[in-house]
Amino acid sequence: MNWTKKIYQGRLALLSAVLLAASAWGVCASSAQAAPAQAATVCGTGDHGLLQKLQTERAASGASPLSFSDVQFLSADTGRAAGNGFMIGTSDGGCHFQEIYEGQWNFKQIDFPDNVHGWALASVKDTAASYLIATTDGGSTWKRMTDTANAFDSIDFRDSKQGFGYSLTSTYYTKDGGRTWRLIPTPANTRGAEFTSASSGYAVVVAPGAGYRIMKTSDGGATWSLSLKSAFAYPESGRVYANGDQVYALLYGGSGMSQTSYSLYASSNKGRSWSRVIAQDTAGGGPAPGTGAAQLTTGPASGKPGNMQLAGNSAAFLFGFSPAGEKVAVGRTYNGGKKWTNLPAIAGYDGLISFTGVKEGWMAVRGQHASSLYSTGDGGATWKLKFAFKGTEQ
């Protein structure tokens, strides 16, 4: 779940987001102002009673129960979470949630660069084909961008017009809100890419039998230069995460027995130099890919790597989950990867994170009997339950 790295800064931006949320979700501004005392004293947690009819209908028909597939917040207070046929949102930090959407779309990824314009990768009901859809009213209504399915694995919109679409081997760029796309040239054997602008980007490249290469471009893919060379006999794939000077390369090894071997490399100078942060070997996945000494031999939850979130100039968070161990956790750094800490785990099978700052973040977790949303105000050290679809065997 490419989860987005959009950060609202300043009180003006936060106020704008909250007001836009009220408009987009059909919440009357005057009524919101009329009951400030109740909002301050009554803060619901757990099951907020939303989508009860849809839950009942799905249970009666034998369909999969409601479950979160993505979560994205624009600030600590304002954000959305979506899943199979629904989207909900909050503008007060999870004290209250509103139903934004209920319908045919099963959301795989949502991406809102602001509180009005949004895009998503979604399928119709339980079909396999994935479509790019868009909204201009905060998520209440959606329009399919093309009549045919797309091959994107993830999307990343930087504003209401410019965005990127990624598959394992290709990168596409749009400057008209997703109506048209152009292919950005990437090196042969690319197995994951990340662009921070139309000109600047990184790619994970597999050299068969020789290992990984992290390549970078500053001219829109016309030319590429070597950033990191990492030996590994059996390369699989990788992900790059970039924000300003911060760049992280997450290199995947083998998988087996609900385990995945992986390495995490960090750069604090746009890829000019790298340090190995995590190198996790597993019995089921074999040795961790790459070379060089690592700070840690296990990642968060001692399990599989999930999505990353980068915040500010030096903070980064990695989600980890262990299906066999039934736990999820977050690892973090506040100094560009020089010191990495794996934080305490909570119960769950898998999930993903959305951080809006160095302390504030949200996590969607799928557990044995619930699909839940948690928030943190201390950088992932502790988590508080905010919403749960309970009584659902996953």
Rank of each mutant, 00 (worst) to 15 (best):
G220F: 15
I346D: 08
L12W: 12
L296C: 07
D137E: 09
D137A: 08
L74K: 02
Q295T: 06
F387W: 10
A188E: 12
L352Q: 13
G325A: 15
N269G: 05
S227Y: 09
L226E: 10
D159C: 03
Y172E: 09
G10P: 14
G220P: 10
G285D: 02
K359T: 07
A17V: 06
T78N: 05
T190M: 03
V116F: 09
P187H: 02
P208K: 08
A222G: 11
G83K: 03
V204Q: 09
G79V: 00
F319C: 01
G103K: 03
A324C: 05
M215C: 12
R158V: 07
A293F: 03
E194V: 03
T171K: 09
V277R: 03
T174V: 07
I110Y: 00
A188M: 02
S61K: 15
R144K: 15
A22M: 11
R239K: 10
Y173I: 05
M215P: 14
R58P: 08
P208T: 00
G177Y: 05
I7K: 03
W181A: 14
D153K: 06
A59K: 14
E57K: 13
W25C: 07
R11I: 03
I133N: 12
R182L: 08
Q162H: 14
A279H: 12
V365D: 06
Q38Y: 04
W181V: 09
T146S: 15
G238M: 10
Q38S: 08
